[in-house]
């Protein structure tokens, strides 16, 4: 089981959902998708690294 893949897959589903829920224009949807997706993936990886020293 690839943890990173699951993180990316989860972020993809959530980002697509909110892009279509909150935006109606195609360009706005793409922008919100990219923003949400990147925040979730990069934020998830960063949070993982920050928790690394903890037992």
């Amino acid at each position: 089981m690839d943890h990173l893949f699951l993180l990316v897959w989860h972020a993809f589903l959530v980002a697509v959902f909110f892009a279509f829920l909150w935006r109606s224009e195609r360009r706005d949807q793409v922008l919100l998708f990219l923003k949400t997706f990147l925040i979730m993936v990069v934020g998830g990886v960063l949070a993982g690294w920050l928790m690394y020293p903890f037992p």
């Binding site: 699951l6 589903l13 959530v14 959902f17 829920l21």
Partner: peptide, 23 residues
């Protein structure tokens, strides 16, 4: 190994549908 992740996906899917109902 995927038990916790699986539950997260199930909860996320359910919450997304509830938001869709509000929409």
């Amino acid at each position: 190994a995927g038990f916790g992740y699986g539950k997260t996906f199930l909860i996320t899917a359910g919450l997304m549908n509830l938001l869709a109902v509000l929409d």
